[in-house]
């Protein structure tokens, strides 16, 4: 089994928490993993991505080959398109629909969504809205992750366990909020 994921978003949007959660889940299931992050300059509000590779066999490259990616998981709609050259033809785009507008020339959101929908396998969810509805507006990144969990070969419980570990220092309340966020995202994917 092998799953290659590109995590996409804008510096500060919580991509690294998503990566850490999948990473913990993978470790608990004895999977091999490599996860290339972007640090430094781009974290100042620039476009950021993380290449996340999971496999039952040893992994060679830290970078996913273009055309070989299984999932683009994006916390922002336009950013999901930035990496579609990496995506396989039948790969999945799972993206938040709420734009993060920190540039003057952000394109028309409807047009962006329409372009995303041209792909074969797509889940678009309003992760910001869902996160607000469950009273945890800062967990929209984990909502988005929840929607991707059916496509990642890790049992759902492992993601929940991972969240408990990662947010351990932040206390019970934050842990529960994030678990709820994960489940809410998952529900969107399941209702498809």
């Amino acid at each position: 089994m092998k799953t290659d994921i590109i995590l996409a978003g804008v510096g500060g949007q919580g991509i690294l928490s998503i990566a850490a959660t999948i990473g913990m889940g993978a470790l608990a299931n004895n999977l091999h993993l490599k996860q290339a992050e972007v640090h430094g300059m781009s974290q100042r509000g620039g476009a950021v991505q993380s290449h996340f590779r999971l496999s039952s066999d040893p992994i060679a490259s830290d970078l996913i080959p273009r055309g070989g990616c299984d999932i683009v998981l994006s916390v922002e709609p336009m950013e999901s398109l930035r990496y579609i050259d990496f995506l396989k033809k039948d790969g999945w785009i799972i993206t938040n629909s709420t734009p993060f507008v920190n540039i003057p020339n952000y394109p028309d959101v409807d047009e962006v969504i329409a372009k995303i929908k041209e792909r074969k396998n797509v889940i678009i969810l309003d992760a910001d809205k869902i996160a607000k509805e469950i009273g945890s507006p800062r967990s929209s990144n984990i909502v988005a992750l929840g929607a991707a969990t059916p496509f990642i070969d890790i049992p759902f419980e492992s993601f929940e366990e991972a969240i408990k570990l990662i947010f351990k220092k932040k206390g019970e309340k934050i842990i529960n909020a994030n678990i709820e966020a994960l489940r809410a995202g998952r529900a969107v994917a399941d209702a498809r």
Partner: peptide, 10 residues
Amino acid sequence: IIANRPPAMC
């Protein structure tokens, strides 16, 4: 339609 998103000061 993909706009550049360069880093910026906070």
